[in-house]
């Protein structure tokens, strides 16, 4: 299955069949709404399926569940909510076909992750069932915001993608998202209450320790709780968000991804990478208007080409080389 023939319009760079070692969970977050996350998720899912992977797209977009619209589908009768409420027994029961061979969809409950009362056990139940699906990639469209529910799904993913557009608000939100996610991760290994409190305080801009970044946090922990430092450092090192820059209009926009990576490394101490970018294009917008996926409708567009490259790069674990090249 994994070695199925690539779609004919696929560029050579985009397709390299990988042996199916285990199923992977990919997630797409991004802090801000309206930056094309769902469209990106649908496109990646489409491309993965076109290159022979069996894919399940999961719409975890809070409030505005609309992945089905990106795929040109009506709202499915059964959603993740039905599974959560145990109206259906199996997560397989809420899987719907998308018309693209190999690509299926789990539609979102109208506000699945927003629901403040989604309990830890429910989260675990969803994750376990998703992991147990007999597919190659589970792709989670996380929607906007940086609530714990969203972050938890982001953190358990094998590939954690952060969508940004080259605009101040989006970039501010993505930094906030990165910090929230990292601190949540660190919290899990804090070891004792004092360290946990320190981590919690870090998100408050006016905290007494003057912590503004994860680098500050590690320094303060090293001073006050040297025993806890090593574990935190390890978590920071293992945290690896990947940027996808959407709506790229020129070379400067394209460079933003590299700048984000450099800024993360230098000023947050976070090892991010730049997975790829998608050009802004009218063809995409026209397809959206017609409720069609541009990958199918405008397969020759530059945007589609970049999605194919991006997918290939993600499968290979490649990142965009720095602009010295």
């Amino acid at each position: 299955m994994t070695t199925a023939a690539p779609a004919d319009h696929t560029t050579a760079a985009a397709v390299v069949a990988v042996p199916r070692s285990r199923r992977q969970i990919w997630s797409l977050g991004g802090g801000k709404g309206g930056i094309g996350k769902s469209l990106l998720a649908a496109s990646l899912g489409y491309q993965l399926a076109r290159t022979g992977r069996r894919v399940v797209l999961v719409d975890a977009d809070l409030g505005g569940s609309n992945l089905h619209t990106c795929l040109g589908l009506e709202m499915p009768a059964l959603t993740l909510g039905d599974f959560l409420q145990r109206r259906v027994e199996q997560i397989e029961d809420v899987l719907v076909e998308t018309g693209v061979p190999g690509l299926r969809l789990v539609s979102g409950a109208s506000d699945f992750l927003a629901a403040a009362n989604i309990k830890h056990v429910q989260k675990v139940r969803i994750l376990n069932r998703l992991r147990a699906l007999d597919v190659d990639v589970v792709l989670l469209d996380l929607g906007a915001g940086s609530s714990f529910n969203i972050i938890d799904f982001f953190l358990i993913s094998d590939v954690s993608l952060l969508t940004v557009i080259p605009e101040p608000t989006s970039i501010e939100n993505s930094y906030r998202f990165i910090k929230s996610a990292l601190y949540r991760r660190l919290r899990g290994v804090a070891g004792n209450e004092a360290v946990r409190q320190l981590i919690d305080s870090a998100l408050d801009a006016k905290n007494e320790a003057g912590i503004r970044t994860p680098i500050d946090l590690l320094r303060v922990v090293a001073e006050r709780h040297p025993d806890a430092e090593e574990a935190l450092r390890r978590e920071v090192a293992a945290f690896h968000p990947r940027f996808v820059v959407n709506q790229v209009r020129d070379e400067a926009d394209q460079r933003v991804g590299h700048q984000l990576v450099a800024a993360c490394a230098r000023h947050l101490g976070v090892r991010a990478s730049y997975a790829g970018y998608v050009p802004y294009e009218d063809a995409v917008w026209r397809a959206v208007r017609r409720r069609r996926l541009f990958m199918a409708d405008a397969a020759e567009s530059r945007a589609a080409d970049h999605i194919r490259r991006l997918t290939g790069a993600l499968l290979q674990g490649e990142t965009l080389p720095l602009p010295w090249a």
Binding site: T213, I215, D216, L218, H258, V261, A262, A265, R266, H267, G269, R271, S273, Y274, L322
Partner: peptide, 11 residues
């Protein structure tokens, strides 16, 4: 801080 993660400074 800029040097904290020096080896990856510019990635």
């Amino acid at each position: 801080p800029a040097v904290e993660d020096a080896p990856q400074a510019i990635p």
